[in-house]
Amino acid sequence: MILEAVILHVKPSLESDFEATFKKASKIISSMEGYLSHELHKCIEVKGKYLLLVRWETLESHTVGFRNSPGFQEWKKLLHHFYDPSPTVEHFEEIEI
């Protein structure tokens, strides 16, 4: 399992619109092959800052499958105009302890 962690900075005064649109866009990502789950968190200390966590079966499920899909183009169309600057995306693998 791969955990994708994304820091999103939503433009001022667009938070409510972003959250409503994200609910619609969630249907896109959740339909992708290799998708396991996702969650969106709103930062308490910094207005307009969000953390998106997405669990994928493999790194390629995200970097190849999702990003090369027509669904990703729709995802971008719905969401990317809310961000400034562009999102920071990193991938993590679990360490067994």
Rank of each mutant, 00 (worst) to 15 (best):
L36F: 15
L14Q: 15
E74N: 00
I95K: 10
F66H: 10
L36C: 14
S86K: 09
E93D: 07
V6A: 02
P87A: 00
R67A: 02
L59S: 12
Y83F: 07
F82P: 00
K49I: 03
E33H: 07
S61F: 08
G48C: 00
Y83H: 03
P87F: 03
E39F: 11
H91A: 03
K47Y: 08
G65L: 06
F82R: 02
I95E: 10
W75V: 01
V54C: 03
H81R: 06
I28F: 11
H80W: 14
H62P: 06
G71H: 05
G48Q: 04
E57Y: 08
R55I: 06
L8E: 15
S37M: 15
E15T: 11
F66I: 09
L78H: 10
H91M: 03
L59Y: 11
Y83I: 01
S31G: 02
G48N: 01
L14H: 11
D17K: 04
E4L: 04
R55H: 15
L78M: 08
R67V: 12
L40G: 10
A25E: 04
T58Q: 10
K23E: 14
W56F: 11
V64S: 13
T63S: 14
V64Q: 14
W56H: 10
K77F: 10
H9N: 09
R67M: 07
Y50M: 00
H81E: 12
V64L: 10
M32Y: 05
P87Q: 01
H62E: 09
E57T: 09
V89Q: 06
K77Y: 15
T21F: 04
L53M: 12
G34P: 07
I44G: 05
Y35T: 06
Y35A: 02
L53A: 05
K76C: 04
S31D: 07
T63Y: 13
S26K: 08
